[in-house]
């Protein structure tokens, strides 16, 4: 059980709503404004020679979505075959992406200033995609910077500045 750290219904601008997802047991939060869609990925066509993070491409209501396997992206253990997965749809530079995660949790409204910077000892790969950490009761939630997540292969700076520009 997670407890909202803010009163529900408070529409104060200093709060952000996060869609929470679980990847390999770790809780992550994605700013709700950046989430277009939540869907169950089906019939993923793998793309040979692509980066390992790329799970493949799939058809989501007539659009071609590039699916990113978050477990690979975050260097986590691969999913057990047959295990159910979900995906979060993201729009980035006019293209559709789907972040494949384990499961989707609830939507949390959190204080904007409640976010803490990444701990300095966080794995650099994680640090590069994490916008900060929230201390929730009982667990920590890592805020995913979805646009940096899509910066696979790290054409780093140029893209990430654009990304944060979009994110802001």
């Amino acid at each position: 059980m997670r407890i909202d750290t803010e009163l529900p219904g408070n529409l104060d601008t200093s709060t952000i709503e996060y869609v929470t997802v679980t990847i390999d047991g770790q809780l992550f939060g994605l700013p709700i404004l950046e989430v277009e869609d939540v869907f169950q990925p089906q019939k993923i066509t793998s793309v040979p020679l692509a980066n390992r993070e790329v799970a493949g491409v799939l058809n989501l209501r007539g659009r071609i979505v590039t699916a990113i396997d978050m477990r690979e992206r975050l260097d986590l253990v691969p999913r057990v075959p047959g295990e159910i997965s979900m995906a979060v749809g993201i729009e980035y530079k006019g293209e559709s992406y789907g972040l494949v995660i384990d499961k989707v949790g609830e939507v949390l409204r959190l204080k904007e200033d409640g976010i803490e910077p990444n701990p300095s000892n966080l794995n650099s790969n994680w640090a590069s995609v994490s916008a900060g950490v929230y201390q929730l009761e009982g667990e920590l939630m890592v805020v995913l910077d979805v646009f940096r997540v899509l910066d696979v292969g790290g054409e780093a700076e140029q893209l990430s500045t654009q990304a944060t520009g979009v994110a802001a």
Partner: peptide, 8 residues
């Protein structure tokens, strides 16, 4: 690149 998503 074998990827073990269900249904993949």
């Amino acid at each position: 690149e074998a990827f073990d998503l269900p249904g993949a």
